[in-house]
Design a protein around this nucleic acid. Structure first.
Length: 465
RNA sequence: GUCCCCAUCGUCUAGCCUGGUCCAGGACACCGGCCUUUCACGCCGGCAACACCGGUUCAAAUCCGGUUGGGGACGCCA
């Protein structure tokens, strides 16, 4: 069998979102699994809506996710000559014809048909008028009047359409730019795409495209229509479901492998396994295991996965990633060693890099003002003796290592009569300003003796009777 | 409205093709518990689903038909 070739062909008419990312991922995985070729093609035939910033967004997103392409990006607008050549072929064989029906009139008819409850279709007005090229003249496909068009969808199984449901679609607009269905067929054909993997919202386009392949005397590729991603309200994922552009997830502090893992598991499975490295994804991916029904985007699961990948990351790598999120918390540092130690303590507690950066603040800045409730509850006159004792005992220590600290705490606890929880929490608030934080001893070790004493003293001074 | 696709816990899903091993398994979320100086992490346990009706069969989540529900497409958008 010939080498497998897949493609991802977004249109640069909006920011790259999760649905597109998953389609790209499945195409990429399928190609990689079969040692095939993954082609990137930009479908920019909608000249009015296409923008280069959107294309850049797509490319940046794919790179960030690690979905590298082997060919392209090709641009449809650079291939107009090719489409025209193919149009000539269809015109020559009579499979296509010129049409000068005014779009406005067609639009009226469409609305009227919809209102009547009919499937709106072109009425074939120009079918046999034998028009030649001219201004305001488009080229239409002469679609067969009867029969059925079917294919064996690699994901959904056999699908059949009655040709009567299909109409004479426009192939080439009056301005000479090809329409989607035509450009796709020409491109997939000339780029020798063997497997078209796309969202199942494209199912209605498929019979039209198959007919075009036939008219061109070509064999259609294999098709696999994957289920769409729906929002929590079960409607097609859209802006109102919150952040959706892939890069927005990067900015929210998600890791590429987490997003890739999440996207892969949404609509695809491999037994009960939940965590997949990219290598495993490539090894296990198959179209047969793609589910048929739409999936709902589950933000909680993404968060959980991201937390998992955060914990799996090496401290130093994570510290470097975290560095970019620090400035928005007012933290600027170049001390990667220090940051690496900080990161190690934050790792198990965060779901995103943004969360982690928030938690990292006290390592760099004075914890005051303390969280009001925390201070009220734990920095009280009754905890003062314990706090002071801790500070004084610490001051006598050469360095703040766990073993010594442990002993000091239990001794002070006994002497002061405070509950260990109360004593520890008082110290915690003094050092971090909060009631929740990484372990006290690791914090102290990282902060260093001098800073710990300073914070303890400040806390003692803040206690009023 | 017409056509097409789909239908297992709240969500992602395993099982369905090759009926019995499924009074349906895993994961997220949620609720308990353990660990613990806090919060997490981790571990243990719990809650929770085969849309409905009919048929085939000794036996159906699994096969068939219908109903209902959801989604998608109906552009000189992609």
């Amino acid at each position: 069998m010939a080498r497998i070739r897949t493609r991802f062909s977004p249109s640069p008419t909006g920011f790259f979102h999760l649905g597109g990312a998953r389609t790209a991922l499945f195409n990429w995985l399928f190609a990689r699994h079969h040692q095939g070729v993954f082609v990137l093609r930009i479908e920019d035939t909608d000249v009015a809506r296409s923008e280069t910033r959107y294309e850049e967004d797509i490319l940046d997103s794919l790179r960030w996710l690690g979905l590298d392409w082997d060919e392209g990006p090709y641009h449809q607008c650079a291939r107009l000559r090719i489409y025209h050549d193919f149009i000539e072929r269809l015109l020559d064989t009579g499979a296509a014809y010129y049409c000068d029906c005014p779009p406005e009139r067609l639009e009226e008819k469409r609305k009227a048909a919809l209102a009547r409850g009919e499937n709106p279709r072109y009425d074939g007005h120009c079918r046999d008028r034998h028009l030649g090229p001219g201004p305001n003249t488009a080229v239409r496909f002469r679609s067969p009047p009867a029969g059925t068009t079917q294919w064996n969808d690699l994901s959904k199984g056999p699908i059949a359409f009655d040709n009567q449901e299909l109409d004479d679609l426009v192939l080439l607009r009056a301005d000479g730019v090809p329409t989607y269905n035509f450009a796709v067929v020409v491109d997939d054909l000339s780029m020798e795409i063997t497997h078209v993997i796309r969202g199942d919202d494209h199912i209605p386009n498929t019979p039209r495209q198959i007919l075009l392949y036939r008219a061109l005397g070509a064999t259609p590729p294999e098709f696999a229509h994957i289920p769409m991603i729906l929002g929590p309200d079960k409607a097609k994922l859209s802006k109102r479901h919150g952040a959706l552009s892939v890069l927005a997830y990067r900015d929210m502090g998600f890791l590429p492998p987490a997003l890739v893992n999440f996207l892969a598991r949404l609509g695809w499975s491999h037994g009960d396994q939940e965590i997949f490295s990219t290598a495993e994804l490539i090894e296990y991916f198959s179209l047969e295991q793609v589910s048929k029904s739409a999936g709902i985007f589950n933000a909680d699961k993404l968060l959980w996965l991201n937390g998992h990948y955060l914990r799996e990351s090496a401290d130093r790598d994570l510290a470097l990633a975290l560095k970019d999120f620090l400035p928005q918390q007012g933290v600027v540092t170049d001390d990667v060693d220090y940051l690496t130690r900080v990161t190690a303590t934050l790792k198990p507690r965060a779901h995103t890099l943004v969360e982690m950066a928030e938690m990292a603040r006290f390592y760099f800045h004075d914890p005051r003002p303390y969280e009001e409730k925390a201070a009220q509850k734990f920095l009280t006159p009754s905890s003062r003796p314990g706090l002071a004792a801790i500070r004084d005992r610490l001051a006598a220590l050469p360095e703040l290592k766990e073993e010594a600290l442990n002993q000091i705490f239990s001794e002070v606890q006994k002497q002061s009569g405070l509950k260990m929880v109360v004593l520890a929490q008082a110290v915690r608030v003094a050092l971090t300003g909060k009631t929740a934080s990484p372990g006290l001893f690791e914090i102290m070790d990282i902060l260093g003796k001098e800073e710990v004493l300073r914070r303890l003293t400040a806390a003692l001074e803040s206690v009023t009777d």
